[in-house]
């Protein structure tokens, strides 16, 4: 074999080698793609099942909260109304009897209102603005603190899963404010900025150090829940300076 033949063989084998490398590369890419596709599908299934699990937990929590509320209403409100009605019916005076009937009608009205809350159908019929108003009214009615709601628009037409998560997160944020912050005022604002639609829950309570893990775990849970619906949760707080929670709605 002379040097020229050698060079020609090198050229032939180099061409074949390059072709081989390219074939191996493309085939490997297709195999890696298949593997990653399977992994991705498993991941998506896991995310979906976690999402469903979160929603189920949220539904349970809302029902639990509703039952607690109904229990309190039965004891503090309807129980009182029925006792009053009983007293009035015990009287022989016709005006007392009439008053008893009115109180009984009021109690029936209250029971009807409560019965509607026993299943989660109300979630679909209520807007987020209405829900927030009701929650703030309830807090205000207890005389715990002043409340206010300022909304630039009505949050309607949200999918049920998003609504459930939002309701629960708002409920939990308000519960936390009442339980731990002792505020004089709770303000909620619904607005839109460059990041999208947002809900700001602000209290002027005692605040806390948000960097501490013990106080942050509940908040982490809320954040995770907002993330399951593609939204965002941001909390800023400092001791003595109140707490601000910003919920970013999914686009």
């Amino acid at each position: 074999m002379n040097p020229t033949e050698d060079q020609i063989y090198v050229i032939i084998f180099a061409t074949l080698f390059l072709g081989g490398i390219m074939s191996t590369f493309v085939i490997s890419m297709v195999f890696i793609h298949r593997q990653r596709q399977t992994q991705n599908r498993q991941k998506m299934d896991q995310v979906k099942s976690e999402h469903e699990k979160t929603l189920l937990n949220i539904e349970n929590e809302i029902q639990q909260e509703t039952l607690t509320h109904i229990g309190r209403e039965l004891h503090d409100n309807i129980g009182q109304l029925l006792s009053l009605a009983k007293l009035n019916f015990g009287s022989i005076k016709p005006e007392k009897q009439a008053e008893g009937k009115e109180i009984l009608a009021q109690a029936i009205q209250e029971v009807r209102g409560l019965s509607k809350q026993l299943n989660l159908d109300w979630v679909e019929s209520i807007s987020i603005n209405e829900f927030i108003s009701q929650q703030l009214e309830r807090i205000h009615a207890t005389g715990f603190c002043e409340t206010s709601l300022a909304a630039d628009f009505e949050l309607i037409d949200l999918p049920k899963d998003q609504k459930l998560v939002l309701i629960r997160v708002i409920q939990e944020s308000l519960n936390n404010a009442i339980k731990h912050a002792s505020p004089d005022q709770i303000k909620i604002r619904i607005y839109e900025n460059g990041k999208g639609k947002q809900i700001l829950i602000k209290d002027d309570g005692k605040g806390f150090d948000a960097s501490q893990e013990s106080t942050g775990s509940g908040m982490f849970n809320l954040k995770k829940r907002m993330e399951t619906i593609g939204g965002g949760f941001n909390l800023t707080s400092a001791v003595g300076k109140g707490t601000e929670i910003t919920l970013t709605l999914p686009n």
């Binding site: 020229t4 060079q7 020609i8 050229i11 032939i12 180099a14 061409t15 390059l18 072709g19 490398i21 390219m22 590369f25 493309v26």
Partner: peptide, 24 residues
């Protein structure tokens, strides 16, 4: 990718091949 890799060597060594072994 195949077009450019399979013709890579022959294109770079085109002049040499035509001088030494035009058939190849």
């Amino acid at each position: 990718m195949f077009t450019f890799s399979l013709s890579y060597i022959s294109s770079v060594a085109l002049f040499y091949l035509y001088k030494v072994n035009p058939v190849l």
